[in-house]
Amino acid sequence: MSATQNRHPAMVLGKYAALAFYLIFALFPLYWLLKIGLTPDELIYSEGTRLFPSEVTFSNFTTVIFQTDFVAYFRNSLVVSLGAAFFTTLFAAGAGYAFSRFVFKGKRIVIAIMLVTQMFPLLMIIAPIYKIVAELGLLNSLISLIVVYTAFNIPFATFLMQSFFDGIPKDLEDAAMMDGCSRFQALCKVVFPLTLPGLGATLGFVFTAAWSELLFALMLISKNDAMTFPVGLLTFVSKFSVDWGQMMAAGVLALIPSCLFFIFIQRYLVQGLTSGAVKG
């Protein structure tokens, strides 16, 4: 296919123009965030639309890190995201394994329920969840967020894990079980080491999802010291709505963990979605 397309010089030119378009469209907004974050305050207005700042400073970043509650938000988000990612992956691995290896009664119903949770507006349950959490006295606690995010992410993570388990030959466990392992032992000793990429992808996926969730966090957290990053940044924005440099610096810093995770897991995630998609 590529041979046919590359023959014509105009086609080649068109192709590279399209590649450049996609690259600029994807990266320009992030570049702009970084650019304003690095521009010294006094130049932000005078050099508003220049592509490169004439001077570069890190003072916005140091101010954000040392003089605001930024580090606390960062820590809260890290706790919530890691917690949700860990529990989701654990539970989704179990569920995905069950879907992949067993034929059992109720399987279709469980799968249907999981699909339904992906369909209806999650905002629909924001009011009941608020009331339940309030009655349990868990408002402003990170635990409530971890539990909610874990439940929200389990269905997709389960399907993702299932596609990874499906890719591992069943014979491997059967052989281990022949040799006297229980199924659980076979799972731990033989299957899990092989699904490490899948586990990594699922961890990363849930981590990024939990890192960016805003609406439930906004509803359930109102105390400054329990705020996660999105909520913190949003209050930051509405409180100091003129300090552009600092806001964008905070934005860049918020981007770092999810981008790092994304770079590590990108390949596996694409691979997992691809194998799942081809089957479906």
Binding site: L30, S212, L214, P230, L233, G251, S258, F262
Partner: peptide, 9 residues
């Protein structure tokens, strides 16, 4: 990469 950027951001 845009996919990995948190939505609020």
């Amino acid at each position: 990469l845009p996919w990995a950027v948190p939505t609020f951001l």
